[in-house]
Design a protein around this nucleic acid. Structure first.
Length: 383
RNA sequence: UGGGGUGUAGCCAAGCGGUAAGGCAACAGACUUUGACUCUGUCAUUCCCUGGUUCAAGUCCAGGUACCCCAG
């Protein structure tokens, strides 16, 4: 088979490419460039501004060395404009509205498993492969997305929004092996990136002081931090969009009591609501509305498991179908910090059914905003 | 001005004559292809100041000083 492998300059995609070649496929590699710090005005909090070589280019060099070591051709393709238009614009719009988007899920949906697949087909490669830890299962010519064997690295969560139609064109060579085996293979091949640290942070942008990064695009706007239990002002925030539900760090609320966690925000009034201690009822919900559901198979169960964030354990939920792409999930056991803007991904055993955006969260029938408004109707007290 | 109380880290706060607990915050590291959570580590040679008693003082004594409360 002719396969184009997305080579990132990391170990995972390198070993993925090697495995496919070893299996006798006709393999070529492509390096995607999706972020340009200077083009995208990425200045504040950018640790690499003064570096001679930016991390994207250094990854490209690693990809070059890897491709050469494996004896594979390497293409280079830019999706900088696509990334900005389809991923980053929505990302910023969501933050601006006080929500917490998941850019990497959008990146997979629009870039890696759309633009990149189109590119591959144009180049004459009907199949693409990546170093994702996930599995494509073919049952009677129906293709399913499933969790990787290495559950501790499983990345199916990030793939829940990819078009169902592309599943039959994807190969995940790391589906059945563990991270440590990947590292072992890389060192046996003497690949220079065998010990390279796993990349974290927003894909293509990297690990950053997140608030400083956002300040490049969403200017700071200070306002009150309010204790939702008594409407007392506890401090000042730098802009509600810089914080997310369940966040503890960066609030700068010292003194008695605590720790404090973000439980909600009022974008219009520029208020950040916090509550004391992790068990606080304000953090919990018992149901949520999911929109933009992307289905990856025909299964529509009434109960399944859900992850509300990457690496979270599976939570059993009950599904109520509203429309084809809108569902209500309920979980009477209560779950903490289900965050609007993030992705809910549905699983039945290890099969990923699909996922959608958390639109709103509820507790005993009341939405988070209704609850917050009820609690803050009384006037806010200055300390 | 009289009477009472309190001054220990950025913030709360233990300590009661034997060599400065703990929490919050902050910072650093680990974990992690989002944002987070979590975990681990660091953070007062010094207790408002000055004297004194004592082998030994944050702790006792004297004076000063700052803040708080009640009187006026």
């Amino acid at each position: 088979m002719k396969i184009l492998v997305g080579l990132s300059g990391g170990v995972d995609s390198a070993v993925a490419a090697y495995l496919l070649k070893a299996q006798g496929h006709e393999v070529a590699c492509a390096f995607m460039r999706n972020w340009d710090s200077s083009l995208n005005n990425d200045i504040l909090g950018n640790p690499n501004l003064n570096n001679v070589i930016c991390p994207q280019e250094s990854d490209y060099n690693d990809a070059l060395i890897t491709a050469e070591a494996l004896g594979l051709p390497l293409y280079r393709v830019d999706f900088i404009k696509e990334y900005w238009d389809e991923v980053f614009t929505t990302f910023l719009k969501e933050y601006d509205q006080g929500r917490t988007p998941n850019p990497d899920i959008l990146c997979n949906k629009y870039i890696k498993f759309n633009s990149f697949i189109n590119y591959a087909q144009k180049m004459g490669y009907p199949y693409v492969a990546t170093g994702h830890y996930a599995k494509i299962r073919n049952k009677d010519n129906h293709f399913y997305l499933a969790k990787a064997d290495d559950l501790s690295k499983d990345q199916s969560y990030f793939l829940a929004q990819i078009p169902q139609s592309v599943l039959s064109h994807i190969i995940f060579p790391l589906a059945n092996i563990t991270k440590s085996e990947v590292r072992r293979i890389a060192s046996e091949l003497n690949l220079n990136i065998a010990k390279k640290k796993d990349s974290t942070g927003i894909c293509f942008i990297g690990e950053r002081d997140f608030r400083e990064f956002l300040k490049n695009y969403l200017p700071a706007k200070t306002g009150d931090i309010i204790n939702i239990d008594n409407n007392e002002v506890l401090g000042q925030h730098q802009g509600v969009m810089y914080y997310t539900i369940g966040q503890r760090k960066g609030l700068n609320i010292g003194g008695p009591g605590g720790p404090w966690f973000v439980v909600g925000k009022d974008v219009k009034q520029n208020l950040l609501f916090v509550a004391e201690n992790q068990e606080n009822h304000w953090l919990y919900s018992d149901s949520c509305l999911i929109t933009d559901v992307n289905w990856l198979c025909m299964l529509r169960p009434l109960e399944c498991n859900v992850k509300f964030r990457y690496r979270q354990k599976d939570h059993p939920v009950i599904i109520k179908y509203i429309t084809e792409d809108k569902i209500m999930l309920s979980y009477p056991q209560m779950i903490s910090s289900v965050t609007p803007g993030q992705q809910a991904v549905l699983y039945l055993d290890d099969v990923c059914l699909g996922g959608g955006v958390i639109m709103d969260v509820y507790n005993q029938g009341k939405s988070l905003n209704e609850r917050l408004e009820g609690a803050t109707n009384v006037s806010i007290r200055k300390k």
